[in-house]
């Protein structure tokens, strides 16, 4: 019963977010279309690159298309549903967490789902189109792709919650959280085979971009249960750490005592 209520609450938040974004139709369409066009132009780099070099460490243009599809849709999904995962540090630093604490709802879930990013919807749609354009659209492959996108979205959300929760200990860590997101996106969008040894460990721990891009694509290229297992385990561990960091950090939170009227 309680779980059903929770789902209804999150669903209501998402509906309100969507309606408020669509209230301003022209900016909505411009941001959505603009982001898709932005991604297409960005991908042109890889088209030019593989036109010249054909493959790098076993990766071809098609693999890059799959990588962009998974990362764009994964990031897009995370920001569409839990848009505040990148803004927790700012919310805490500004003392704006008070408004969530005063309500009888799970704090983290409420914070995360209170914002949906419109440009991210463009990312999500772009990823789906790119997956179709990459070819091999069988039912099994499409299911694997959706699974990869959901896991990538969970990893993005969990790692951003974790990075943003540092604000409870460091006081001003907004910039650090921004750079963490940039690093996640940058490292996600390069062929996984470029990074070996210590670099690979780094990309599965400190900046877990390997879980949002390279590993899901490895699973799509050659599906095997072990890769899926590693991916699920990595995502679950990150999610557990993120929840723990937020809950422990929340105990250190001090109200900003700001008087704000929320209409």
């Amino acid at each position: 019963m309680e779980r059903k209520q929770g789902l209804g609450f999150v669903g209501a938040l998402w509906r309100v977010n969507l309606l408020s974004a669509m209230e301003y139709r022209v900016p909505f369409i411009m941001q959505l279309g603009g982001m898709m066009l932005n991604n297409v132009i960005y991908f042109a780099f890889w088209v030019l690159f593989f036109d010249r070099f054909e493959e790098v460490q076993g990766w071809t243009l098609r693999d890059m298309m799959l990588l962009f599809a998974v990362v764009a849709s994964g990031l897009g999904l995370a920001m569409m549903l839990f848009g505040n995962c990148r803004a927790i540090a700012r919310i805490v630093a500004a003392g704006d967490l008070d408004r969530y604490l005063a309500l009888p709802r799970p704090v983290l879930l409420h914070v995360l789902a209170s914002r949906s990013s419109v440009p991210s919807m463009g990312d999500f749609v772009f990823g789906l189109i790119w997956f179709v354009l990459a070819g091999d659209v069988t039912a099994a492959h499409a299911l694997r792709f959706l699974l990869a996108v959901v896991l990538s979205a969970c990893t993005f959300t969990a790692s951003l919650v974790l990075a943003n929760s540092l604000v409870f200990w460091l006081r001003r860590s907004e910039l650090l959280a921004d750079h963490f997101l940039n690093a996640m996106i940058t490292f996600s969008l390069y062929p996984g085979t470029l990074f070996n040894g210590a670099a690979r460990v780094f990309l599965f721990t400190v900046v877990p971009a390997g879980l949002t891009g390279a590993l899901p694509v490895e699973m799509l290229r050659d599906f095997d249960a072990a890769t899926l297992g590693w991916l699920c385990a990595g995502t679950a561990v990150l999610a557990a750490f993120a929840l723990l960091a937020f809950q422990v950090g929340l105990r250190r939170y001090e109200s900003g005592s700001a008087i704000v009227v929320r209409i």
Partner: peptide
């Protein structure tokens, strides 16, 4: 809203300017 102009200008300059290649 100018964000779409910003993104598109940025990516066109990256590609035609030779930022990555």
């Amino acid at each position: 809203d100018i964000s779409a102009f910003r993104w598109i200008h940025q990516k066109i300059s990256f590609i035609l300017g030779g930022l990555f290649l």
